[in-house]
């Protein structure tokens, strides 16, 4: 098609100059990478990190665009109507794609999305400002036990990864905290730094971005994050909590098995690049390699857990 043969923007032009074209498996021209949120969030940042590696490895430009609305639902509801020729991909997020369709009819279903790779996750973490009296997780738990509901914790949205983590942890620790939902992680961090709330349910990425301004009390990983060797995991402290918000990429469901396989391999290749891994880790992300083959099992396990948590929390019926 004509539009694919014309290089889009000086951007493509600038990056491609000097690089050998060809060598790409089956993609033909720039790829449209839709992020179903606004810019600046974790989904956007990780897509931006993939962008140069994709251009370098496969000789084609990855054009990131934003299609926000309905907490991602607008984008996902439109995904399967897009062309499945492999030139359009869209970011997907857990638990969003599990919880949203379970709440109401939002125009897509979890199984209806052709998710072909989950490439990273941002582990849940409890974050406090540097000047907070909470030095350890125990301090926070003790305060919450002494003053039920008075420990306010900000987080991004309701029925989100942060909210589910808060409900789960409260239950495990036998405490009652107050969850204050904000519009996105950025707003929730602002509230934390401004001492509007006492702590935040955030991600390891918050710790990476804010550096000395904040302190993480615990991270929900199997092992400590390489960037934060001093921050204990919840498991070490006796709470069986691992997980966070998972991010992957999907194709329209009209894409052929070959196209899906090709994409799964390509994203896998980027994920295997040591330089990419380092950039992701520096940003506080945790890498994950669930390819098209392992997706069904992974999604089934995660869905079951999220739905169970959400049901217990009364977020879905």
């Amino acid at each position: 098609m004509l539009r694919r043969t014309i290089l889009k923007t000086g951007a493509a032009f600038a990056v491609m100059a000097g690089l050998a074209t060809g060598a790409s498996a089956d993609i033909d021209g720039p790829v449209n990478y839709i992020i179903p949120f606004g810019p600046g969030g974790e989904s956007d940042i990780s897509a931006r990190l993939q962008q140069p590696f994709f251009a370098e490895k496969f000789g084609q430009e990855m054009v990131v665009s934003y299609q926000p609305g309905g907490g991602g639902a607008v984008g996902w509801a439109s995904l399967n109507g897009l062309n499945g020729d492999g030139q359009t991909i869209m970011g997907v997020n857990l638990p969003h794609i599990v919880i949203k369709p379970a709440q109401k009819d939002v125009g897509f279903t979890t199984d209806g999305l052709n998710t072909f790779y989950m490439f990273h996750y941002t582990p849940d973490a409890i974050v406090v400002p540097a000047g907070s009296p909470y030095q350890t997780l125990d301090d926070l738990v003790a305060d919450a036990k002494a003053n039920p509901a008075q420990v306010t914790m900000s987080g991004s949205g309701k029925a989100s990864a942060n909210h589910l983590a808060q409900i789960k942890f409260d239950k495990m620790a036998g405490i009652q905290t107050t969850y204050v939902p904000f519009k996105g992680t950025g707003a929730s961090v602002t509230a934390l730094l401004g001492n509007q709330v006492k702590a935040q349910w955030g991600y390891t990425t918050v710790g990476a971005k804010q550096g000395d301004a904040v302190r993480m009390l615990a991270v929900a990983m199997e092992e400590r994050h390489p960037l934060f060797p001093d921050v204990p995991t919840f498991k070490e402290l006796g709470y069986d909590m691992t997980g966070g918000a998972y991010r992957g990429i999907a194709l329209p469901n009209t894409a052929s098995a070959e196209t899906t396989k090709m994409w799964s391999d390509m994203i896998g290749e980027i994920n295997a690049d040591p330089a990419f891994r380092q950039k992701m880790l520096d940003g506080g992300f945790a890498l994950l390699d669930v390819d098209a083959g392992g997706m069904a099992d992974f999604m089934a396990a995660r869905s079951a857990e999220y739905l169970n948590d959400a049901r217990e929390a009364g977020l879905i019926k």
């Binding site: 539009r3 014309i6 923007t9 665009s65």
Partner: peptide, 8 residues
């Protein structure tokens, strides 16, 4: 819109 701004 189509070619410079990559609007599909």
């Amino acid at each position: 819109f189509k070619f410079v701004l990559s609007v599909p």
